[in-house]
């Protein structure tokens, strides 16, 4: 018979929560291993029973890049600030791919795991968080291709990318998580989110300088344009990796601020709805 570990158990008080619930980050810390396990599971399961396996992480952005290169680079001849179009678009497709996967998986995460939500206690924040993080593996794989492209086109990055790139990546994740927190919580009650997501993703792609350069936007609209945090991320990626455009300027900081606002408001909205998840899902 196994010995019970004798430690003084803590007393938990269960009662109706009032107003804006505290973020309860302590519980999140206690369950930190679960985030790791969920990410690990998502990565393991994602390419199971596929012929090409992990190669899909490369095929998807590369195919999109080829289509973009043909349509926008060769046919439409969009200006790229003198950078070869394939590298120009692939640099943007990487954070964009990470963002859309994170946004879509994260927004569907609660409904997709409804049996966990209705059966077991754990901090619900873990579900969208894990979905957002699991996209990082695909991102890392596709990044290798980007390095290959940069070597081929002999683009030399600036050294400051060592610290700017992780920060830009964080900004993409913060934005995706923030939006996913809002949408996943709304999705619990209104499945309209499922229908709206593909449309939202497409719309957002047009509003982000992935296929085109941000420099085509006229100066007086730049600030409005930067209200889209992903515009800041994509511009930042091009600046850090290819040296195109300006470094962080006013519009970049507006983007960064907006992404933080989305995350914080998302956290509070999620927490305030959390108590009803098990009953309404």
């Amino acid at each position: 018979m196994t010995e019970i570990v004798k430690h003084e158990p803590t007393t938990i008080y269960i009662k109706p929560s009032k107003g804006l619930a505290a973020l309860n980050l302590r519980d999140l810390w206690v369950y930190r291993e679960l985030v790791f396990f969920m990410v690990w599971r998502d990565v393991k399961v994602k390419y199971k029973q596929t012929l090409l396996g992990m190669a899909w992480a490369v095929i998807q952005p590369v195919m999109t890049m080829l289509v973009f290169t043909f349509l926008f680079g060769k046919v439409a001849k969009l200006p790229t600030d003198g950078i070869p179009y394939p590298v120009f678009s692939f640099t943007a497709l990487l954070p964009w791919g990470l963002f859309t996967t994170a946004l879509n998986q994260g927004s569907r995460s609660l409904v997709a795991h409804n049996n966990m939500v209705t059966k077991i206690y754990f901090p619900r924040l873990i579900l969208p968080m894990a979905s957002v993080f699991s996209g990082l593996v695909d991102f890392a794989i596709a990044f290798v291709i980007l390095i290959g492209l940069m070597l081929y086109y002999q683009v030399t990055p600036a050294w400051n990318l060592l610290w700017t790139l992780p920060l830009l990546l964080l900004m993409a994740l913060v934005t995706a998580l923030g939006v996913a927190l809002w949408l996943s919580a709304i999705n619990v009650k209104y499945r309209d989110v499922n229908q709206a997501l593909p449309f939202l993703t497409q719309f957002w792609l047009f509003a982000t300088p992935v296929a085109y350069s941000a420099s085509v936007i006229s100066a007086k609209w730049q600030l409005v344009y930067s209200l889209n945090p992903m515009a800041g991320v994509v511009n930042g990626f091009r600046w850090a990796l290819l040296g195109s455009g300006n470094g962080p300027d006013l519009s970049f900081w507006v983007s960064a601020l907006i992404s933080v606002v989305i995350l914080v408001s998302g956290l509070f909205y999620f927490r305030s709805m959390e108590k009803t998840f098990a009953d309404t899902i």
């Binding site: 158990p9 007393t11 269960i14």
Partner: peptide, 19 residues
């Protein structure tokens, strides 16, 4: 087991609850 919240009242639970 803290899956859902009560509407009124309180519960004090000493220790980890496994469900």
């Amino acid at each position: 087991s803290r899956v859902t919240e009560p509407t009124v009242g309180t519960v004090a639970v000493r220790g980890r609850v496994g469900s």
